[in-house]
């Protein structure tokens, strides 16, 4: 459902992604792990064009997304066309990125009303359902600063899910949370997994990755070092770099 073809990203002279090609099948749950600065977040952000790759192609549901390469240069599609593809990909940020001036309900209805063009009543019904799905039915009227970190992140997940995405991208969704709040967010993600959602998760939670992932990708210095089912990559890594990384994070 998502294909990446030789994705490169350069910031100045520093090459953050050095040619990554991957495919993500429908219903597949992929965890991307790697040291900080390895490029894993940048890769995730390329998938929905929050970062524009320096070169390479992104294919979403069989179609070349976001830009065409003309004479070796990327020519961006029109805003509406980009937006249409983006909506297929839910995104959950490390720092939640909730809209602070809107209630939990408002955060969820925003995209339904102003992105999809639904009626307010219909949007509210969907939003309430989504908030219930992440266990926050009775927090609909709360503003973000009245919610705990875990609750904020669950609202953010509801906000994405409301758009009926084909896949969900998670950028270190639990890294900004107090340890005791991590569990509630991971539970919601496990539910999504059980429902068959396609998920790409950048994470430092190795235990969670082992539990949930169909496939783990280990990235270091902008390149895929090794990938495979968690039992291989996490429990019997073939590469020295993977072993060193796991040794550091497991400690």
């Amino acid at each position: 459902m998502i294909g990446l073809v030789d994705i490169r990203k350069r910031f100045g002279n520093h090459e953050v992604l050095c040619g990554i090609s991957e495919t993500f099948a429908t219903g597949e749950v992929t965890c991307i792990i790697g040291p900080s600065g390895s490029g894993k977040s940048t890769l995730l952000r390329c998938i929905n064009l929050l970062e524009q790759p320096t070169s390479g192609e992104i294919i979403i549901e069989g179609e070349i997304a976001y830009y065409d390469i003309v004479d070796g240069k990327a020519r961006l599609h029109a805003e509406a066309r980009i937006s249409k593809v983006r909506r297929k990909l839910g995104m959950v940020f490390q720092d939640f990125a909730l809209f602070p001036h809107l209630t939990a309900l408002g955060n969820v209805t925003e995209g339904l009303i102003y992105g999809l063009g639904l009626e307010k009543g219909e949007a509210k019904a969907i939003a309430n359902h989504m908030l219930a799905r992440v266990g926050l039915a009775d927090h609909a009227g709360h503003y973000p600063d009245e919610l705990s970190g875990g609750q904020k992140q669950r609202v953010a997940i509801a906000r994405s899910l409301a758009m009926s995405p084909k896949a969900m991208l998670f950028d270190e969704p639990t890294s900004a949370l107090d340890p005791e709040l991590v569990g509630e967010v991971l539970e919601v993600m496990k539910d999504l997994c059980r429902e068959g959602m396609t998920m790409i998760i950048v994470t430092h939670e190795m235990k969670f990755a082992r539990e949930i992932a169909d496939r783990v990708i280990f990235i270091d210095q902008g390149a895929v070092v090794e990938e495979g089912p968690p039992v291989e990559v996490l429990d019997a890594p073939r590469h020295e770099r993977t072993r060193n990384f796991l040794k550091r994070v497991m400690r």
């Binding site: 929905n48 929050l50 805003e79 509406a80 937006s83 249409k84 983006r86 909506r87 990909l89 839910g90 995104m91 940020f93 720092d95 990125a97 909730l98 809209f99 602070p100 001036h101 925003e110 995209g111 102003y114 992105g115 999809l116 953010a156 906000r159 994405s160 409301a162 758009m163």
Partner: peptide, 25 residues
């Protein structure tokens, strides 16, 4: 900046994002 990004991921155009998300803040 994450306010622009979050709005983009839920399908808001730049103009809508400005009107609904950025200016009120």
């Amino acid at each position: 900046k994450n306010q622009w990004e979050a709005a983009a991921t839920i399908g808001l155009s730049k103009a809508r994002t400005l009107q609904r998300i950025i200016l009120p803040q």
